[in-house]
């Protein structure tokens, strides 16, 4: 019995003709690709926006800041926000031609600090400090941490034991004591920041990298490289490291935030960059005395630090979220 049962019910899903699901075109991949990826997580987008805001502020500081960050006006000492500069105020400069009077006008939008400088302008220029030194210090810490982690994770054996114990030692050391030790040995400078941050961060980075390397060294492509006689350095830096970049990127965002806080703390303690450098930590330290009577001069730098660190944390969380999505 021949039965031709033709299913008269069409399949519910019409088979998509080739290309119905759009694929990423090559030209998208360059810049718009990563940006579009960011849009998938609102947290990543918000974090990226916050960080981008401060980066822009730092880049455009000379244009945005209404006053020079070190200009002191006696009349504006501890002035509350939105205080206009009084009529007739002028900066007096003693030159060979005599006294030069440059009138100053406008308004201190966020008020004046303990010696009469514009908080807003210092905030804007302070972004530059943070956004130069935090990434620099973090990059240096990463260089050391990655080197230690790669060697410890790949070589194993006694090198791993020694490096791990060194990093445990540094991690166990109280960080503030470390900072004080650094400052008694050296003067205040940018180098302090880099050293302090490296000491505080490198062991943590080393642990992360070591963990990733312990997993990656068992892959077949590493064995393939070994069986063709590649040197250990080549395998560590060319075969293994590029494949560890995912978790490291997320960690880097977080660590930039921690470094920003560290710079703030260093400034507050009187370490780090010397005055009159307008960095946020310094601002909080200098205006500590007036904190109860004129809170604006310490509040705004706090908000600035918090917003930047929050932005970095959100970016890190969002990136992790995106990487877990399909």
């Amino acid at each position: 019995m021949t039965e031709q049962t033709v299913h008269d019910v069409q399949p519910a899903v019409v088979k998509p003709v080739g290309g119905a699901v759009p694929r990423r075109r090559a030209w998208l991949a360059g810049l718009v690709g990563p940006l579009a990826l960011l849009g998938e997580s609102w947290m990543a987008a918000a974090g990226a926006a916050l960080v981008a805001f401060w980066v822009l502020v730092a880049l455009l500081a000379p244009v945005l800041a209404p006053y020079p960050p070190t200009q002191q006006l006696g009349a504006m000492i501890n002035a509350p926000p939105l205080t206009p500069v009084p009529e007739g105020t002028a900066i007096m400069e003693f030159t060979d031609q005599g006294v030069q009077r440059t009138p100053v006008e406008g308004m201190y939008l966020l008020g004046g600090d303990a010696i009469g400088r514009d908080v807003l302008s210092r905030l804007i220029y302070g972004a530059r400090s943070v956004l130069i030194y935090a990434p620099l210090a973090t990059a240096f810490a990463y260089a050391i941490g990655i080197l230690m982690g790669l060697v410890a994770g790949y070589r194993r054996g006694w090198i791993d034991d020694v490096l791990s114990r060194i990093s445990d030692l540094i991690l166990a050391f109280p960080v503030l004591v470390l900072y004080v030790v650094i400052i008694t040995v050296m003067d205040r400078s940018a180098l302090n920041i880099v050293l302090a941050v490296t000491f505080a961060s490198a062991p943590g980075i080393m642990r992360i990298v070591r963990g990733l390397v312990l997993d990656l060294r068992n892959r077949d492509y590493v064995a393939a490289a070994q069986t063709r006689g590649e040197s250990a350095w080549y395998i560590m830096f060319v075969e293994i490291l590029p494949n560890a970049r995912g978790p490291l990127i997320v960690d880097a965002c977080l660590r930039l935030g921690y470094t920003t806080i560290t710079i703030g703390v260093l400034g507050f303690l009187g370490l780090g960059l010397p005055p009159p450098d307008p960095n946020w930590g310094n601002m909080i330290a200098e205006n500590r005395g007036a904190a109860l009577t004129s809170p604006h001069s310490t509040l705004f730098p706090c908000i600035a630090i918090s917003s930047l660190v929050l932005g970095l944390n959100m970016l890190a969380d969002g990136l992790r979220e995106i990487s877990l999505k399909d």
Binding site: Y221, A224, P242, N243
Partner: peptide, 16 residues
């Protein structure tokens, strides 16, 4: 003396 490995997903470096 060269080798072909078992797991095709692991045998190539994903970053190159």
């Amino acid at each position: 003396l060269q080798m072909v490995f078992q797991n095709p997903n692991d045998t190539l470096n994903p970053s190159m």
